[in-house]
Amino acid sequence: MIRARVAAARGAALRLARAAQQGKTGPVVVAGTVVGVATFSSVYASDNVLAPPKQPWDHTGYTQAYDAASVRRGHMVYAQVCASCHGLARIAYRNMIGVCYTEEEVKAMAEDTDVIDGPNDEGEMFERPGKLSDYLPSPYPNEEAARFANNGAYPPDLSLIVKARPHGVDYIFALLTGYKDVPAGIAPRDTQYYNPYFPGGWIGMPPPLADGGVDYDDGTEATASQMAKDVCTFLAWTSEPEADERKLMGIKWMTLLTVMFGFTWYYKRVKWSVIKNRRLELY
């Protein structure tokens, strides 16, 4: 990427020099802009990717909590769609209690899974039903198994995916809803799908969301964009489960510090007033 930027800057510099030789001013301005963009912007021609549009998420903002109903629906989308290929290894069942499920619901959910535990007294590993302290099961035992099952593509673990990708939730949403027909002049591929929001344009993941693909338990209509929005909210929560608490703490501290700054400012004025009103006479 850096090499591409250097190359772009060098090309722009050459154009700049040529324009100066020919005594043209218009291209100089253009070339200067190219140099500026190539040097300081984070959009790279080499990325071969479409920048995802910004979406009006209702959990972004200094005072905005996650929409718990949406997080709950998002988990349903994850469990019914994403979980067949993507792990969520850093989230334990207990983490979801009081966030989007009750304790009883999460317990029932955990008991449906089989967890390998052990060793027991005889040194054997054994299977037991899951419990609240277990982490969510991953679909593949390791990366090689995952690649073997998916034509060489590796479905990444989604626990921190929103933090791990540029543009965060906007990128995930654009990716999930951004599958397009292959443009004219480009040969379609057998095991890859065209998605301009994925770097390179070809992604191994088939379009995951279709209208009505998930059963919501709150009566919301499961359209593809609704499911994408919900799963993005859920993944934003898995990336930053502490965000609600952090924001509340931020409101408390910033307000208090602002008030304290007022006191400090006044105290300083009081203490300095004596000095600032003193008349200096030098003989």
Partner: peptide
């Protein structure tokens, strides 16, 4: 402050 937070997020928590 908690009351303010909850009034900002009425229906979401």
């Amino acid at each position: 402050m908690t009351a303010f937070w909850e009034s900002c997020n009425r229906g979401k928590l």
